[in-house]
């Protein structure tokens, strides 16, 4: 475990906790895309299939349970909780995320590290995670005025994968035969998708003005 990866995991954990905190305290999910949350739940469910078969470390297992639990509870809140679901603007959150799932599945069947169920599911979860933020970014463009917590949530989510890229570079140079093209390319695409959001986020932060994304 190197510093970059630990920082990445903590940033990712913090992004999820910021979101859960927002939903739980103000009982609102305004500005949050349910589609992205559902995609993340699928990402974790398909990536952590080895939760009970491969024990790597206590840290690894605990973090998997936390990610699974938090993403499922966010989806539950946004779908079932009587107060929270009222603040979900479904007519704005219209990204057809089903169109993301099938191509990722087909790609995983074609490009994987080994043609086994677990490895195909693992590759699928990486491809899906790379594009899972799209519904949320589209929703931000639509709703324009982004409240602080949502902006912080998306920023932290983008930052976590950036730390992971540093982790992969570090591991490439320090570990023999550490090569995972699938992970690296997916992670790079994922981070690039946040590019313009980061640009506007830093601008709003620098000029100390409300974060506005161009229409």
């Amino acid at each position: 475990m190197n510093m970059f990866r630990f920082l990445g995991d903590m940033t990712h954990l913090f992004s999820v906790l910021v979101l859960l905190l927002k939903i739980h305290t103000i009982k609102s999910c305004a500005g949050i895309s349910l589609k992205t949350q559902e995609l993340y739940a699928i990402v974790f469910a398909t990536r952590y299939l080895d939760l009970f078969t491969d024990y790597i470390s206590l840290y690894n297992t605990v973090m998997k349970l936390v990610y699974l639990g938090s993403s499922l509870s966010i989806v539950w809140y946004m779908r079932r909780h009587k107060l929270v679901r009222r603040s979900y603007d479904k007519d704005q959150d219209t990204f057809r995320h089903h169109f993301l799932i099938l191509p990722c599945l087909i790609l995983a069947l074609l490009i994987n590290e080994k043609f086994t169920f677990m490895e195909v599911m693992w590759a699928f979860s990486l491809y899906l995670e790379a594009v899972a933020i799209l519904p949320q970014l589209v929703l931000l463009q639509r709703t324009r005025n982004i409240d602080n917590l949502t902006g912080q949530y998306v920023f932290l989510l983008g930052a976590y994968r950036s730390f992971y890229i540093l982790n992969w570079i570090y591991r490439y140079f320090t570990e023999v035969h550490y090569v995972h093209w699938i992970t690296w390319i997916s992670g790079l695409v994922q981070t690039l998708l946040y590019g313009d959001f980061f640009y506007y986020y830093f601008h709003s932060w620098k000029n100390n003005e409300k974060l506005q994304l161009p229409a």
């Binding site: 995991d9 990712h12 080895d50 790597i56 590290e113 693992w122 995972h180």
Partner: peptide, 10 residues
């Protein structure tokens, strides 16, 4: 050959 050992990253 990329090792397909268990994936140790989250």
């Amino acid at each position: 050959e990329e090792e397909t050992a268990s994936h140790d990253e989250l």
